[in-house]
Each structure stands twice: as C-alpha cells, then as structure tokens.
Simulated assay, not measured.
Amino acid sequence: MTKHHIYTMSFASVYPHYVNKAEKKGRTKTEVDEIICWLTGYSQEEIEVELEKQTDFETFIGKAPQLNPARDMIKGVVCGVRVEDIEEPTMKEIRYLDKLIDELSKGKAMEKILRK
C-alpha cells in the first residue's frame, strides 16, 4: 500500500496554510503554534528547527517529543472523516492537528481547543 501524499509533504509547506486559515478568521500565528506545541510536545524553538529542516509530516509527527494524552478527547469531522474513526496512527495525528486548527478558525476558545 502506498503512503498518503501528506506523509511526504514537508510540514513547512503545510504550516503557512494553518497560519493563513487562522489569521483570516482573526486568530494568530501564536495560537497556531500553541496548538502545535500542545498536541506534539515540541517547543517553539523545536518547531522552528523542523520548519527550517523541511521535515516531512510523517517524521514531524513520528518524532514528536510528547504527544498529548488528552488528544483522544478530540472528536468530530475533518475533511469529511470522523477523526475518532481513523485507524492509521500517523493520519490520525495529522487529522487531530487539522481539527484543532479548524476549531481555532471557527472562533472556539483556546481553553476548549486545548481540552482544559
């Protein structure tokens, strides 16, 4: 089975889309970064390094320092698929991030996005 093309895309090529989506709705790059840090355990500095290295999405997720245990509380539909039903682990993590960015762009409060 061939890998989904998102796995081989650099995280740096997708990241600006996350930021643009948030900023179009009055949210900030700082909030996007906070979400990424919360989900993956990367520090802000580590995110910057991975962006600079053009790390592919599969590696970015695979070597995340500490995937947040509360991420299993993320529910809902993104890209027409219910995230809690995704079985492939890497795709599930990518879709978790997509879902959190969707919630941010829809105006949800950060406390709720970060499942506090």
Rank of each mutant, 00 (worst) to 15 (best):
G107W: 00
L51Q: 01
G80N: 04
I47Y: 01
E88R: 13
N68G: 00
D56R: 08
K116W: 07
A22K: 08
V49A: 05
I61E: 04
K3T: 12
C37G: 04
V32L: 06
E93L: 15
K3H: 12
T40N: 05
K108Y: 01
I94E: 07
D33P: 03
E52A: 14
V83W: 08
A22M: 10
D72M: 02
N68R: 01
T40Q: 04
T2M: 14
K92M: 12
M1V: 10
D102Q: 12
D102F: 03
T59Q: 12
I6E: 10
E93P: 07
M110N: 11
R71H: 03
V83N: 03
R95Q: 14
D33L: 11
D56M: 09
T55F: 11
E48K: 01
T59L: 13
E34G: 14
R82F: 02
I86K: 05
G80P: 01
E93I: 12
T28K: 07
R95L: 14
L97W: 01
Y7S: 09
V32S: 08
Y7C: 13
K3N: 14
D98K: 02
L39C: 04
T30D: 15
E31I: 07
K29G: 04
D102N: 10
P69D: 01
M1C: 07
I61C: 11
T59A: 13
E46Y: 00
A109L: 09
I36N: 08
L100F: 00
T40S: 12
V49D: 13
R95E: 11
Y7E: 15
P16N: 02
T55K: 09
V32F: 07
N20A: 12
S10H: 10
E103D: 15
L114T: 06
K29F: 05
E34A: 14
F57A: 12
K24R: 14
G107L: 00
E87I: 15
T90K: 15
E58M: 12
A22S: 06
Y42C: 07
D56A: 08
E87S: 13
